[in-house]
């Protein structure tokens, strides 16, 4: 099957899509949680979080939790809108409308 190059390039990558899928279903999640669920390496996850943050899709805040720094991530309104558009596009690709 042909890969979909037309879809939002910021979301159409495996790890970034995984991060966004987690963040859309929770209020907020920290770096450790995202790393455990996506099974990504810390370096890779960090790079992808930065890309999503620069795109305005997520907010990242740092605090000092249980004697260790905690990086908390939350999806933004823009991120939520883009994710919903991405899912709609996917549905159209998978189930294209029959020709008139």
């Amino acid at each position: 099957m042909t890969p979909f190059r037309e879809l939002d390039p910021l979301l159409h990558s495996q790890l970034r899509l995984a991060i966004m899928s987690i963040l859309i279903s929770v209020d907020r999640a920290d770096f450790t949680y995202l790393r455990d669920k996506t099974e990504a390496t810390a370096g890779n996850l960090s790079v992808q979080l930065t890309k999503l943050k620069e795109g305005g899709y997520i907010e990242v805040s740092k605090s000092f939790g249980e004697s260790y720094p905690q990086t908390m991530c939350r999806i933004t309104t823009l991120g939520r809108t883009r994710f919903e558009e991405y899912v709609k596009s996917l549905e159209q690709y998978i189930k294209p409308e029959p020709p008139q």
């Binding site: 890969p3 979909f4 990558s13 495996q14 790890l15 899509l17 899928s21 899912v87 996917l90 690709y93």
Partner: peptide
């Protein structure tokens, strides 16, 4: 998840979500 830039098919994307 190893290759973060790997292009996915629609089914693969839905599977990830």
């Amino acid at each position: 998840m190893e290759n973060e830039e790997k292009l996915m098919t629609g089914e693969e994307s839905l599977k990830v979500i």
